[in-house]
Write a protein that binds this DNA or RNA. Structure first.
Lengths: 211, 211
DNA sequence: TGCAAGTTAGTAAGCACTTACTTACATGGA
DNA sequence: TCCATGTAAGTAAGTGCTTACTAACTTGCA
């Protein structure tokens, strides 16, 4: 007979197990997409039987929906402007754009899974990307284009459609993060610190639109 | 009995059918990814039995590989600098950047499937994205950063790492195309012509880096 | 009439999901 | 301190359906 102490039985509380399965699923969905990930594989990686997955989540779609909630709580709803409130008061243009860029790049680097999940979601027409887009991306667009518009009235920025400027700026950051996550993770083409990237992107943009 | 003339039998030549199946597969892979697309569905949409798919392509992976070849021939290997040779000779900075941007945006718009296919491929770690990246993207990086480097020596551009500048510029275009393809196909946030987008992107970048 | 285009009717393996069962453990009364 | 017991964590072994893929056959056309 096998001594019980040899075989470590890890029996978790329901809530803990739920979150563990959720996080395994996030990792796998990020890596292989929704339809590329089987519930069996999720169970295996979580170290439980497949039935446990369905005890915690009614079905695979519900598991996906719960991931959205989980991620939205942990990431989407942080205020992206909280850290640049001082710069905003002072109309410190570089501080604002640098701060936003650095913040975004750091977040993306910390949570590459989230980027992949978002992309999978967008490609598969799931809800996550729509939710994220409506509640987060468009907020950034509104805020930044509002600020740019104000600075145009101040006579500091050139009169270019503000949303085009935002698109250019967001594009620099997103594409940089995506390059580092998807196409060139070893950064063979370009290897720079987040600080330098943020600084140069902010400089290029602000030089590009200042009068 | 059904009159045969009523029922149009479309019996294609082998090569025609092959390409038809291939193009259906491209559309479906682009829409739903590799593992999200069944061979049955491909056959249905092509209007043949599933067995026909396997008569033309040894297996699903081979079908995917052949799509890569097909797409690489049709798209990847076009010379992206052919259309701006005149501007290059004259060192017409705006002409060059505007031309490249407009060319890219137009291509992306024409072939949204290709963007989606590339993204799916990158997310699923298939070969297409690596091939495309190595043979096409890095060529653009080399070329553009070479040109920027030259203009820096001419004393016209600021001394910023050229590849960061390229990343910023490519980011504007890719992100704009991706926004219009993935997140905001109805262009609620921003609706501009390719010409205007290309013009503003080129302006922002060139203002941003000129001395 | 030969041969390529096309189909029908499979196969085994894999899929999401379920049922019916077992095991670990906190709790409270003796 | 002990041990009975209810409950929640956990499993084995399926279900019916779908998947990629095949073999053996039929049909239309040069």
């Amino acid at each position: 007979m096998v001594n019980k102490t040899e075989h470590i039985v890890t029996r978790m509380s329901g809530e803990k197990r739920r979150i563990q399965i959720l996080e395994v699923a996030i990792r796998l969905f990020a890596k292989q997409g929704f339809s590329g990930t089987t519930t069996k594989k999720i169970a295996q990686e979580a170290g439980v039987s497949e039935a446990m997955v369905f005890k915690h989540f009614a079905n695979k779609d519900k598991l996906y929906a719960d991931i959205i909630d989980y991620k939205a709580c942990n990431h989407g709803l942080e205020d992206p402007f909280a850290e640049i409130s001082e710069e905003l008061k002072n109309k410190d243009d570089f501080g604002i754009f640098y701060g936003m860029a650095l913040n975004a790049l750091r977040h993306h680097e910390e949570d590459k899974d989230f980027i992949r999940l978002l992309l999978h979601s967008a490609l598969e027409n799931h809800e996550l990307s729509k939710t994220f887009f409506d509640s987060y991306v468009s907020e950034i667009y509104d805020f930044l284009s509002g600020y740019i518009n104000q600075r145009q009235k101040d006579g500091v920025f050139l009169d270019v459609e503000p949303k085009i400027i935002v698109r250019a700026f967001v594009g620099m950051m997103i594409h940089h993060s995506m390059s580092n996550t998807l196409w060139d993770p070893e950064q063979k083409i370009l290897k720079v610190s987040d600080e330098q990237a943020a600084r140069e992107f902010a400089n290029i943009l602000l030089n590009g639109i200042k009068k």
